[in-house]
Design a protein around this nucleic acid. Sequence first.
DNA 1: CTGAAAGCGCTTACAG
DNA 2: CTGAAAGCGCTTACAG
Lengths: 341, 341
Amino acid sequence: MAKKLSIRDIANELNISKTTISFILNGKAREKRISDVLTEKVLKYVAEKGYKPNQLAKSLSTGKTMIIGLMVEKISDYFFAQMAYHVEELAYDSGYKILYCSTDNDLLKTRELISLFRDRHVDGYIITPPAGLEKDVQALIDDGLPVVLFDRYFEDVDSSYVVLDNYKASYDAVKYLTQKQFKNIGFIELDSDQSQMKDRRNGYLKALQESDLVPMVLRVPFSNSPDKTMKHLIDFIEQNKNMDALFFATNYLAFEGVKALGKLKFKIPQDMAVIAFDDHQAFDIYTPTITAVAQPIDELAKKSIHTLLNMLNSQSTVYKQEKVIVPANLIIRDSTEKNNL
Amino acid sequence: MAKKLSIRDIANELNISKTTISFILNGKAREKRISDVLTEKVLKYVAEKGYKPNQLAKSLSTGKTMIIGLMVEKISDYFFAQMAYHVEELAYDSGYKILYCSTDNDLLKTRELISLFRDRHVDGYIITPPAGLEKDVQALIDDGLPVVLFDRYFEDVDSSYVVLDNYKASYDAVKYLTQKQFKNIGFIELDSDQSQMKDRRNGYLKALQESDLVPMVLRVPFSNSPDKTMKHLIDFIEQNKNMDALFFATNYLAFEGVKALGKLKFKIPQDMAVIAFDDHQAFDIYTPTITAVAQPIDELAKKSIHTLLNMLNSQSTVYKQEKVIVPANLIIRDSTEKNNL
DNA sequence: CTGAAAGCGCTTACAG
DNA sequence: CTGAAAGCGCTTACAG
C-alpha cells in the first residue's frame, strides 16, 4: 500500500509549516490571516494529491471522533432497523458516522457496550435502554457526555429522550374499539415494566375504565419461545370466551396472536377484532389487513438526531435535557371493521 | 468530567515507566521478562482504578482500529438487518466493532463512503457492492485492505466473497414447480445486471429449458414507485392469461405481486402458484403461506466474518481471496400446493 | 528485568 | 502573515 500522505509530507514539499496547512485545511485561513495565494496553493496541492487527514490523529488531538454510538435493542427488528436507517442518513448529513450495537435488552451486555463505546470516545449516544440502566445513564450525563434515550425513558433520571406517546396511542386505539361497540377487549403485553409497556397498559386501562369495561390482560414472559408464547395465547383466548377484540402491545405478539386465532378457527374481525401496537409491512398485505398503531419512525429518528446534535453543538457540557414526545397514528384496516363486511 | 486516567498517570503513581505498564497491559509481561510481583501490582492498580486505555491513541500508534466497516445496500431491509445483527454478534466476539452504512446501491454514494471509512482506518470491509464498483474494490485489495464482498460479486475482480448459490436455488425452485406440473411459469425480476439477479434469472431459464417450457419474464425498473410497480405487475399478469405460476426474484416483488393478484381476484394457489426468492417473516403468516427460497442468513454472516477474520489475522497483506458459495433452502408452504386443497 | 526516547499524524497556544 | 514546539495517549526498537 502506497504510504499515505501526511501533513508533514505536504509541509516539506511546499516548504511551509504544518501549522499553516492545518489552519488552511480547517477553514481558518481567513481567521489566521493567511495569504490568499498560499491558501490557494495548498488547497490545490491537497486536491491534486487527494490528501485526506488521518481521522485518528485528528480525533486524538481534538478529543472529537465525529462518531455517534447507536445502541438499539436489536438491529434486526423491523422498528430498530428502520430507525437505524434514518438515523444513519441524518447523522451522515452532519458529518457523523454510526457505531452500532444491539443490547438484546440485556443489562450487563449493555453496560459492557457502553464501556466499549467510551473507550472509543464516541461523541454522543442514542440508547434504547434495558431496565436497570438508570445509574449508567446518569454516569454518562454526569461525565458531560451527550445522551438521548430512545423508545423508553427512566422516570427517575433527568435525561434527554425521544419517545412515542405510548399512553395516548394506546388509549386512542382502545377508544376506537369501544366506539365500534366492542365490549370485551383483551390486552396482550410483554411481561416488562419498562416505560413503553407501562404506558401502553395504562392507556388501555384508562380507556376501558371510561366505558366501565372489564380489563382482561395476558402478560407473556419476555424470553418465551414462540411455542410457549403460542400456548399462552391459546389458553388466554380459550379462557375468555366472551372476548370480541384483542389489542396486542407489540407487532411480534400480534403475529403470534393472529396465528393462534387461525388455529382456533376464529375469523378476524367477525369473531375477534385485532389491533397491533407498532405497524409492520406485513400487516398491510395480510388478509384481512391488520389495524395498527403506527410509530412515525422517520420523525422519531429525526427528533433523536436533532436532540443529540443540539447537545453536541452546545458550548457547555451541562446540557439542557430535552424530553420529546411524539404522537402515533392509528392506521385503520380491515381487522377492526366488522361492519364493512 | 473527571479527567481520565492515562498510562502516564499510572507510571507516575507507581514510579515505573510507561513502557513497562504497556507491556503488562498487552500481555507481554512474560515475554519481556517483567517480574511477577510488578505485574501483579500493576494489574491490581489498574483494576482498582478502572483504567481503560484510550483506543484512539492505541489505534494511532498501532495502525489497527479493531473496527470493521459494514456497507450494506440498506440496513432497514429485512435481509440486511438480519445480516447486520449476526455480523455484529460475531464481530464483537472477536473484539471488533462495527461501523455501518447503507449504500442505497448508489455507486457515487458508495465511493464516498469507502473514502470516509478509509479515513477512519477501518481494519476490514464487508460490502454489498453496487454495480460499477469494480475498480474501487480492486483498489482496496491493491492497497492490502481486507475486503469481503457479500450477496453479490464481480466476475472480473479477484476478491473474496460470500454469496448464495443463486443459480442453483432458482433452478431448484422452478424445477419444483415443473415437477408439480405447472407449465406456464412467469419470472418477475428487478431490472439489474448484478450477479445475484443474473444468476437467479439463469437458473430459471435453465430449468424451463430442460422441460421445453417457454419463459415469460417481467423486468421491473429498479427505482419504481410501488404504484408503478403494481401497474407493471397487473399488466404482465393480464397479458399472460395462460400463466399458472409466478416466481418472484425478491421478496419485495412478491409482496407487490401478491397484492396485485388479490386485486385481480386470483386465488393462490388455485389460479396462480407463487414462489418468492428470499424468505420473510410475513410469508409464514400470510394466508395462504408463501413458498420461498430461504437464504441462511446466519450462515452467510458467519462465513463473511470468518473470511474477513482470516484475512485480518494473516501476516501477509497479499490475501488469499476466498470464494464462498452457500446453498439455499426451498421452504415449501401453501402457495404452491394446489393438490392439497 | 526495566526505562528513556522517538514516533503515530494531527491541533493549537504562543511568539514574532 | 507564519512557524517552532508541545501535546493528545499510546507502542516499541533500542540500550543497558
